[in-house]
Simulated scan of single mutants.
Amino acid sequence: MKIYTKTGDDGTTGLQGDVRVLKSDPRIFAYGAVDEANASLGLALSHNPNEATKRILTSLQNELFVVGADLSNPNTDDSKNRVTSQMVANLEQIIDTLETQLEPLKNFILPGGDIVASQLHLTRAIIRRAESYAVIVNQSESLNENCLKYLNRISDLLFVLARTVNKSKGNPDTLWKS
Rank of each mutant, 00 (worst) to 15 (best):
167 K>M: 02
20 R>C: 04
87 M>G: 05
48 N>K: 14
83 V>N: 02
165 V>S: 01
83 V>A: 06
58 T>M: 14
124 R>A: 03
71 L>T: 06
73 N>C: 15
91 L>D: 03
62 N>A: 10
165 V>L: 02
68 G>S: 11
34 V>K: 05
102 L>E: 03
119 Q>H: 15
114 D>G: 05
137 V>S: 07
174 T>N: 15
123 T>C: 14
97 T>M: 14
37 A>T: 06
175 L>T: 13
140 S>T: 02
128 R>T: 10
134 A>G: 04
134 A>S: 11
79 S>F: 11
12 T>C: 06
41 L>R: 02
50 N>T: 02
151 L>A: 06
38 N>S: 10
39 A>S: 15
54 K>W: 07
66 V>L: 12
45 L>D: 04
105 L>D: 04
104 P>N: 07
11 G>F: 00
27 R>N: 03
160 V>L: 09
117 A>Y: 02
31 Y>F: 03
134 A>C: 03
52 A>G: 12
69 A>G: 11
158 L>C: 08
76 T>N: 09
46 S>C: 06
49 P>Y: 07
34 V>C: 04
155 S>L: 07
115 I>E: 09
157 L>I: 06
162 A>C: 10
178 S>C: 12
69 A>F: 14
61 Q>M: 00
145 E>S: 14
138 N>Y: 03
19 V>N: 05
154 I>W: 06
172 P>N: 13
80 K>S: 08
141 E>M: 04
29 F>I: 05
175 L>A: 13
30 A>R: 11
18 D>F: 09
173 D>K: 07
29 F>G: 04
104 P>D: 08
130 A>T: 03
14 G>Y: 13
90 N>P: 00
112 G>V: 15
138 N>L: 02
